[in-house]
Amino acid sequence: MPIGHELSGEGRAALGEYLLLMADDELVLGHRDSEWCAFAPLIEEDIAFASIAQDEISHAALWYELIESMRGLSRDQLAFGRRESEMRNATLLERENGDWAFTVVRHYVYDIADDLRTEQLLHANEPLLRSVAQRIRREERYHLEHGAMWLGRLAHGGAEAHRRTQHAVDRVLAESRGLFHPLAWEQVLVKEGVLPDRPSRLLRAFVERVHAALGEHGLQIPSLAEKRESRCGRIGHHGPELASLLQTMGEVWRSDPAATW
């Protein structure tokens, strides 16, 4: 039976939105991560980071697969066939990679958010959600260790590295609130018993964990409270960076969406 068959029409629509949101986050970040391949600062790190990129893309595939039966679209159609305004990833994740400090900080902060999200999903009432969350969490444990290691290394790596890390923290946290933007359909998921609570309410735990993770390295942590993003990816408002990303990503696939590649 396809996932969500026991929910109301509204419930199924809400679940579809949430799955797309998670899938798009993972796909866009995984794509950005993969852009480092062959150019990471150390050959050994290049190899490790390529695994992280593969993990994110394959996590996206897991979420898209759940949506396939709900929407009657293949996972490739979902990943490659949607327009910019239909994408639900957070704006933070579509930003270009910048320097290694931005990449490390963004990925680490996102991994904390994803950890909270998947932890909540371990308590979802739908077994498919729980099992995908479990699979993802097994791989994410490494990501968190890897991120913590690099954050420490860069924050304590001398004046320039510290400066760049601080700058990265400022930029990343200015947009991190968008990861937990409250959305209208969240309440439906709670009402129909899919999730124990609205995912956007994880923001508070997220702020605490980010403070703990970054604070131990002598980094100043800008407040997330007052920031307002100019664009909110969660409701399909994206910038030219996503447009360019989608164009590159879809270049071959869209040349013939009906073909087998």
Binding site: E44, Y142, H146, M149, R153
Partner: peptide, 15 residues
């Protein structure tokens, strides 16, 4: 090659 044991252990896993 790594700059310390923590990095070495993490990188070794993917290598």
């Amino acid at each position: 090659l790594a700059c310390d044991a923590d990095m070495a252990v993490l990188l070794a896993q993917e290598l």
